[in-house]
Each structure stands twice: as C-alpha cells, then as structure tokens.
Design a protein around this nucleic acid. Structure first.
Lengths: 108, 108
DNA sequence: CGAATATTTGGCTATTATACCAAATAAGCA
DNA sequence: TGCTTATTTGGTATAATAGCCAAATATTCG
C-alpha cells in the first residue's frame, strides 16, 4: 500500500507527464526551448493545425505548469517554464536512437 | 513545417511519454527502480488493482521499451530498462515541490 | 464607433484509454 | 494426469482526449 502524500505526488507527476505526451505539445515545447517565447500564431504555423486546437494544447501545457503566458497587445506569448522537460526529451532521443540501433543489430 | 524524420522522432517520444503518463505505471516504475526486478504479483499488491489491470499496464511499459520481462517458472519478472525515466521523475518531484512552495509564497 | 486581427471557448463527434470480470494459457506439483 | 498458482487475453462499459467549426472576447487602428 501507499500513503496519501505519496499518492498525491504520483498523481502530480502523472498530470505533467500526460501534458507532455502528445506530438503537437512536444513540438511546441521543443520550439519554445530553441527559440524562446513564441506567440500562438507561430506555433499554429509549426503545428499545421487549427488555431483553436493549438490554443487548447497550450492550455493543457499551462495548467501543468510547463509553460507560462504573457499577453502583450493582441498577441499572447508563451514561454517554457520547465527546462528539465527538454532535457528529458533529449535523453529519450538517445534512448530511441540506441534502441533502433540495437534492433538493427538483431536483424543482422 | 517539419520533415518526416523529425516527425517520427517526435512520435516516438510521445509514445514513451504516454506510456509513462499514468499513476499506476509511475508507481510501478519507481518500485522497479528502488527494488530492482519484481514479479507481477508484487506489483499487483503495490497498485491495489486487478491482476489483469496491472498486467496490461506492464504490457504498455514493455511495448514502449521502458521495462523488460523474464519468465522464470510460473512467475514473470519485470526490470526497468530506462533509468533516465526515473531521473526525470525525480526532477519532476522537485519542480512540483518548488511549485507548491511558490504558491504558498503567493498566499502570504 | 466599426472593422480587422489574435486568441479562447463551447459544442459536437470520433477515437483512444482504462478498469473489471471471465476465460485462456502455462508451469509446477501431487 | 489433474490441480493449483501466476499471468495474459478477450470482451465490454465508461470515461477521457483530440480535432474541427462556429461563436465569443479582446485589442488595435482607421
């Protein structure tokens, strides 16, 4: 069994991970990491999806504390607030690449 | 726009993140990290869920390359294969804790 | 003020995930 | 062989997600 405090921590982690677990949101995060803050319209172009769709993805990221927003004029600019998310993505990238490599080894 | 290779990498990352993004699976991963390999029955006890439910969670983790399994006798033992996942969980833990702290600051 | 632009919200549908139960499979033992 | 234990698989009901369109909101500018 597991105590309540631990359970809450696990649920909090799950919430963040769920927010990260979507291709469009990953693209957004990586873009924000590379370019710094972006307005929604830039991210719409990147994601090649509906404006409303991207806006909803950004809401998910914001509610998980992964990005923050700042309205200036008509535009809203989003900024990455969780650098360790990107570090983890990079780690995943090397895991995936080495996985592919070892799969290719098996095929020999 | 984004090229096909990049898109595939992003989808692969999303797949792994999706596999991580469930409280029961997080519990399993942390347990495997602390205790080393475990049989399914130990994880059932931990998760306080149906045997079949836990088994399906383990299948998700295995298909994402996060754990591996080894059948010995009647039991199947699962082992964590992605240590950086746990490192990221730890990072999340400190992000969550500092978030709670800064929220409490705001309440003062 | 009224039009134009940027973004969010509401509503709907289609797809996907989750949990449990029951049944199937597999291994070890009497 | 037949029984028990450990685990997986199939079926199904329910809930959560994702995407698009249309409408609402907010801001700037003429």
């Amino acid at each position: 069994m597991i105590d309540r405090k631990k359970k809450m921590m696990i649920d909090a982690k799950a919430k963040i991970l769920k927010a990260l677990a979507h291709p469009t949101r990953i693209m957004i995060i990586e873009k924000l990491s590379e370019d710094g803050e972006c307005c929604v319209c830039e991210l719409v172009e990147l994601a090649n999806a509906d404006f409303s769709t991207v806006s909803k993805h950004l809401t998910v990221l914001k509610q998980a504390g992964i990005v923050s927003d700042d309205k200036r004029g008509q535009q809203v600019f989003y900024t990455l607030q969780m650098p360790c998310a990107v570090r983890f993505m990079d780690c995943l990238e090397s895991v995936i690449k080495s996985g592919v490599k070892s799969q290719m080894e098996m095929l020999k």
